[in-house]
């Protein structure tokens, strides 16, 4: 089983960190993993994306054209990747920033108001964590407990007060995915 995940948004939305979260969790589950960012003359407000592959087998190309899952955190990302998701795949989008939908019959589309949920928790920067919660719940690519452990290790080891808001963000995203009927 191989999950090929592209996470895309504006620079500053935590796109690269969200991908690393998946990669660290994949490693913790003993999977083969690759994480590769788009790199170059990037800046805050520009576009950023990363590709994460989680696999039971050795991974060839770290970049792929047709992902099995996408997180789109801004409108250009939805336009770019909505048509590339593999049939049977999964598309998570932040509905508080994106008005349109992919509308594909063959893809599970999860519109989660990630930024609003994160703001409700008092941490607008956690929209990426909400989206990761939705993706993990929708794809089953990783066990949610593994992602929770890694999330806490990466965000709350030095700042224990960040533990609960992060977990709440992750679970809120997962709840939306679970509630999304397809």
């Amino acid at each position: 089983m191989e999950h090929q995940i592209i996470i895309s948004g504006f620079g500053g939305q935590g796109v690269l960190f969200a991908g690393q979260l998946l990669a660290y969790a994949g490693l913790a589950e003993g999977k083969h993993v690759t994480w590769i960012p788009s790199y170059g003359p990037e800046m805050r407000g520009g576009t950023a994306n990363c590709t994460v592959i989680l696999s039971d087998e050795e991974i060839g190309s770290p970049q792929i054209r047709y992902p099995s899952a996408v997180i789109a955190l801004n409108p250009p990302s939805l336009v770019k990747y909505a048509k590339l998701v593999k049939p049977g795949g999964c598309l998570v989008l932040d509905a508080s920033l994106i008005d349109s939908r992919a509308g594909r019959e063959d893809v599970r589309e999860i519109a989660v108001r990630a930024k609003e949920i994160a703001e409700g928790l008092g941490y607008p920067q956690m929209a990426n964590v909400v989206a990761i919660g939705a993706l993990v719940a929708a794809t089953g690519a990783l066990r949610m407990e593994t992602v929770e452990d890694v999330l806490i290790a990466k965000t709350a080891r030095k700042r224990p007060e960040m533990r609960e808001p992060n977990l709440a963000a992750l679970r809120a995203g997962a709840a939306v995915a679970t509630a999304t009927v397809h």
Binding site: Q20, L27, T34, W35, I36, Y39, P62
Partner: peptide, 10 residues
């Protein structure tokens, strides 16, 4: 190349 330099792997 940049792919090897920028990629994260175990």
């Amino acid at each position: 190349d940049g792919n090897i330099g920028q990629m994260m792997e175990p």
